[in-house]
Write a protein that binds this DNA or RNA. Structure first.
Lengths: 122, 122
DNA sequence: GTTTGACCTGGAGTGCACTCCAGGTGGGAC
DNA sequence: GTCCCACCTGGAGTGCACTCCAGGTCAAAC
């Protein structure tokens, strides 16, 4: 327990569900930037880093490719004047998520249909 | 226009949305079996093949891995006595689709939340 | 009769998103 | 003071689902 919220790699793995390798990979490709290090060169994550990772997880789990997340990360790094663009990017993504849900629901109907058919021939 | 419903590869590409390469790949790995050929060795698909491809598309688009579809194809090939198992497999898959939808909806809430936040700082 | 185009085969290559590995460091527990 | 374990690096390897390619066949259009 530390006074200031600083997290070791294993704590971040625990909290975010990303593997340590994935965290390093994200840092390598620039999806995670400015992660601090202690004197021994080990990563020390802040509360803010955790927040960012949470957003990354959300975008990833809704099917945004890494290239899209990198674009978003780039906007964030450019500062406050890109907020409108960030909204646009998120709204565009939101539309795709909506489509995904509608699509899944539609396909699911067909699966139900198939199951009923199989039930009827049992 | 033929009297009997027989489809050329390009017609199947048109109707199913799978690429020709994908159709060949599916045949190679055994997901598509018993596709007939004309005298020149070219594929001729039946109405039944199209029905199967439709199901494949549905399962694929809801995230079933090829290994799962191969298991299903195997059950179908084994004949009528596997109907109960097919129902089980489809129901298991249906549960995962349901989870996917719930998950997407949950994540979408967070995206909406983020968008509202950005709107508030504009 | 030759050109075009849809089709064939086996096998190599691609893109994505990790995941694993070898070899090494540094600090706390005993 | 030594042992262990979490961590480090660069780079190679993996799994999935295609996708592309070279070289060839055949039938119909012109």
């Amino acid at each position: 327990m530390e006074c200031v919220s600083v997290y070791t790699p294993s704590e971040v793995v625990e909290e975010t569900g990303f593997s340590l390798d994935t965290l390093r990979y994200y840092e390598k490709i620039g999806l995670l930037a400015g992660i601090e290090r202690n004197s021994a060169g080990q990563r020390r994550f802040t509360q803010q880093d955790l927040g960012w990772l949470n957003l990354i997880r959300c975008l990833r789990d809704t099917g945004m490719p890494i290239a899209g997340m990198l674009r978003f990360a780039d906007l964030v790094r450019q500062g406050e004047h890109t907020v409108a663009e960030r909204i646009e990017l998120l709204e565009e993504h939101d539309r795709r998520v909506k489509e995904q849900i509608a699509n899944l629901a539609e396909r699911q109907k067909y699966i139900h249909h198939k199951i009923s058919y199989y039930r009827s021939v049992l």
